[in-house]
Design a protein around this nucleic acid. Structure first.
Lengths: 93, 93
DNA sequence: TAAACAAGTTTATAATATAAACCAAATTTA
DNA sequence: TAAATTTGGTTTATATTATAAACTTGTTTA
């Protein structure tokens, strides 16, 4: 009756990150930080977890001389996100 | 942009309990345990938290000679649940 | 060149979820 | 009727998690 909720997505900040990434081609660390209001530390940790799960990819480069971390959702991440949304609906109806 | 999610409801088991209670007049411990598949211990703890928050009420009585714990959602619990659902939609769209 | 800022990472702490162990009373079974 | 099992939980311990605080490295600005 109540499907298991993917614990990797059932987290406020990770869910917000995935929600953003599902709607854009890419987003960098600073953008995600601003949009979510998260602290850098928290965001850094959660990005690591999403990366380890293969839900997003992280590309490190530079914008001018400043470091720049760019995130993208993966197909597997998008699928997990969609499944999570479906599962959650069972809880809300 | 991303509203804060009520941490009391952003928990798989507590959300399931609230989801059930939002749809029925009352439900007892055993019913909730069966429907959610939770262990007794976990359910007991989460019911306590929802009670402490004023989201549900618990009535202890007997069915025949056996103890019986009956749970009901409160108006405040229903409102919190509805708000949670609305907040969550911001994350899913 | 010293102070402040940017863009993060690492580490420590506090909260949380969950399961394991336990308990008392009732019921069933040998 | 005594022992074992079941019911209906609670309490306690553990493992995970989220989060913030502290730190790092390099850059810009006064």
């Amino acid at each position: 009756m109540f499907p298991k909720l993917d614990p990797l997505l059932h987290s406020e900040l990770r869910l917000a990150v995935m929600s953003i990434l599902s709607g854009v081609d890419e987003a960098d660390f600073t953008f995600l930080k601003n949009q979510t209001g998260a602290t850098s530390g928290n965001l850094s940790v959660q990005i690591d977890k999403l990366t380890a799960a293969g839900y997003i990819t992280v590309e490190k480069g530079f914008r001018g001389k400043m470091p720049r971390t760019t995130c993208r959702i993966t197909p597997s991440g998008r699928e997990a996100f969609n499944q999570y949304v479906e599962a959650l609906k069972e809880y809300l109806s």
